[in-house]
């Protein structure tokens, strides 16, 4: 048996690696749009007609528009918002999400999605085993634990967002349901880009991103999970492309799976991302 590997994490490492690696890449960073809490937002001449969106507030005394979160100012026509970069998962209808069953209450499963409000999956929003279509009875309620017991990892879709922020989920498709034989890697939901397809060979979405890698071999699963963790540590966007890129870098550098949190690998990964951004910028330029 091999000894347990203890990896000392340099907390500041991701920060320094990022700054060193990406600072040289084509700077799409507009520092004038970055604001802190309490900063006044200068909207120039049309201060009057501005619509204040999320992350903004008006001062009662002066009528000035002020940021209520630290983030990036975005403006669409008259609507001004300040977007935070780190926040709990904010659901949109149609999102594919992955979460664990926290408890079973009445005729609903309560899922832990890392969102601000609770997420529930109604018994009637689930396909019964065998795919029979019928009204759910009290008997079905009693067998809910047999379908998805507590702790089961589920892939479901957001059906609706209640007025109070609560989420209603559904799993009325063969694509959705319990996931098994994989590793659940939790990453910040803000990093996961919404795409047309979330069930890819490297799939996942939501706050928790699952690497089902359905049927993938054990080693493969671990490597993908490590790639995801590396991306999340560096706070780089996550989609099928970036995960594939991170895996490519890992293979090119020849890093062993347990060492994918190392400084050497993270540096190589950032360099690759920076190179990718240079290339994209060059394409646009032509």
């Amino acid at each position: 048996m091999s000894a347990i590997r203890v990896q000392r994490l340099d907390v500041a490492a991701p920060r320094t690696i990022l700054e060193a690696g990406l600072a040289e890449a084509p700077s799409n960073l507009d520092s004038t749009r970055i604001v802190s809490i309490g900063d006044e937002l200068d909207m120039g001449t049309d201060q009057e007609s501005i619509l204040r969106g999320h992350g903004t507030q008006t001062r009662a005394e002066t009528g000035a528009l002020v940021a209520s979160v630290a983030g990036v100012v975005e403006r669409v026509d008259q609507l001004v918002t300040v977007k935070t970069l780190r926040t709990r998962y904010v659901a949109e209808v149609g999102d594919v999400v992955v979460g664990r069953v926290a408890e079973i209450v009445g005729k609903r499963w309560r899922l832990d999605l890392g969102s601000r409000h609770e997420a529930t999956l109604l018994l009637s929003a689930v396909d019964l085993p065998g795919g029979i279509q019928r009204r759910r009875t009290a008997e079905d309620e009693l067998t809910m634990r047999a379908v998805f017991p507590e702790g089961t990892v589920l892939a479901v879709e957001v059906q609706s967002v209640h007025a109070d922020g609560g989420l209603a989920l559904h799993a009325r498709s063969a694509r959705y349901g319990a996931l098994a034989g994989g590793t659940l890697v939790a990453v910040p939901g803000a990093l996961v880009r919404r795409q047309a397809r979330h069930f890819q060979r490297l799939d996942g979405r939501g706050v928790d991103l699952i690497l089902g890698c359905n049927g993938g071999e054990r080693q493969g699963v671990a490597r993908v999970a490590q790639a995801l963790r590396a991306l999340a540590t560096l706070y780089l966007p996550i989609d099928a492309g970036s995960v594939a890129g991170a895996l490519q870098v890992a293979d090119a550098v020849g890093v062993a799976t347990p060492d994918m949190g190392s400084r050497a690998y993270l540096t190589a990964l950032v360099e690759d991302v920076a190179a990718g951004r240079v290339a994209t910028a060059a394409d646009r330029g032509q």
């Binding site: 960073l29 507009d30 520092s31 749009r33 802190s36 809490i37 630290a70 970069l85 706070y235 966007p237």
Partner: peptide, 23 residues
């Protein structure tokens, strides 16, 4: 000091996620 810290932090995160693209 806190404001400088926050701005640097947000700047770093938006650099990583490349959200704050200049228009």
């Amino acid at each position: 000091f806190l404001r400088t810290t926050l701005l640097a932090h947000v700047g770093r995160l938006s650099l990583a996620t490349s959200i704050a693209k200049s228009e």
